[in-house]
């Protein structure tokens, strides 16, 4: 099923990147925003024949304050938790309108986009419903690991130990005391044809995954690493460097789940210590050696589990 849909798939190379932009200049993202960058890359790969349903969040607010819009493709925002449901409606409507010959028959990529809060917390139910119903759409989770738009509150995607305004470190607290929710695994558990994680540091990889997600028929889930200088307290020029380190330290592994089979798209043979990743960000500044070691062990364990899943798929 996968192979047929991707018959015409051509990998992007640094020399064949599309010039098309779905988002125009003049958007109001913070200086050095990694989230709008990850979004820009993904949408470039998908191409202009798309309709976007956006959740409430940073990307919604920075692109659409009336009377200007940064959007150059059709875009709708309804509320926070329902991007996947709105996208479901658009997809199903176009399907029936094409069948009834009221709009031209043409495959348009329906994109739902939300942050980690809009995906892993408040929007999880709508996402699960849409994945389960099998709508032909691409869901993009832009994971900046907290509620940045409202002022850096913790979400279930905030990593262990991180300082946010609702997971402050203190005498009785190390900061965030829960481990990051594994949303790609939740998405994959729906048995959908395509799930992938990607990072803007590895832009051809990100764009190839976005392209595949668009080409595949049925639901596809993209989990995009989205550095936030404002919320993570890092220098404005570090978004890409931190994205790269997240991969090299195995904190944010890059993989695909194709028809249930895990594929590591970037194997980390000589990992860097997690500490190198943590130390660039003010949100981890308060962590002691013991906690850092705890994080290191958990990261190693989770990566090993991923490697085993990929090996299992390869052996099949």
């Amino acid at each position: 099923m996968m192979d047929a849909a991707l018959k015409d798939f051509k990998r992007f190379t640094p020399k064949t990147l599309p010039k098309m932009e779905a988002i125009a200049q003049g958007h109001r993202a913070c200086q050095g925003c990694g989230e709008v960058l990850a979004l820009r890359m993904a949408l470039k790969a998908i191409g202009k024949n798309m309709i976007v349903a956006s959740a409430t969040g940073c990307m919604e607010i920075i692109t659409s304050p009336y009377p200007q819009t940064a959007w150059q493709v059709p875009w709708i925002h309804v509320a926070f938790e329902n991007a996947a449901a709105v996208a479901s409606g658009i997809e199903a409507a176009r399907k029936v309108l094409m069948r009834k010959r009221r709009i031209p028959r043409q495959r348009t990529t329906i994109v739902a986009m939300a942050g980690d809060g809009g995906t892993a917390d408040i929007g999880l139910q709508a996402l699960s419903g849409a994945l389960e119903r099998g709508h032909d759409f691409v869901y993009i989770c832009l994971d900046n690991e907290a509620y940045m738009n409202t002022g850096i509150q913790r979400s279930s995607c905030t990593p262990y130990g991180a300082m946010t305004t609702t997971s402050p470190p203190g005498k009785m607290s190390i900061g965030q005391h829960t481990w990051k929710k594994n949303v790609p695994a939740i998405a994959a558990a729906h048995g959908i044809p395509y799930v992938a994680t990607a990072s803007p540091a590895y832009y051809t990889d990100l764009m190839n995954k976005a392209k595949k997600a668009a080409m595949i028929k049925g639901p596809a889930y993209l989990h995009l690493y989205s550095p936030c200088p404002t919320g993570w307290r890092h220098a404005g020029d570090l978004a890409i460097e931190i994205s790269r380190l997240a991969v090299k330290t195995k904190v944010f592994p890059l993989y695909e789940v194709v028809d249930g089979r895990y594929i590591l798209t970037r194997k980390i043979k000589k990992p860097k210590p997690v500490k190198e990743y943590l130390k660039l960000q003010g949100r981890f500044r308060h962590l002691d050696e013991e906690t850092i070691e705890e994080i290191q062990q958990r990261v190693d364990r989770e990566y090993e589990a991923l490697v085993r899943k990929a090996a299992l798929a390869e052996a099949e």
């Binding site: 010039k19 925003c33 832009y203 890409i240």
Partner: peptide
């Protein structure tokens, strides 16, 4: 060009990338 969050660089015929100061927020990426 590809790493710019503000889409400030654009490709030109010469192969160089043109910078647009109207939108560059100066992040330094």
């Amino acid at each position: 060009w590809i790493y710019c969050p503000d889409i400030v660089y654009s490709p030109t015929k010469s192969g160089y990338f043109k910078w647009d100061g109207n939108y560059c927020k100066g992040c330094g990426i």
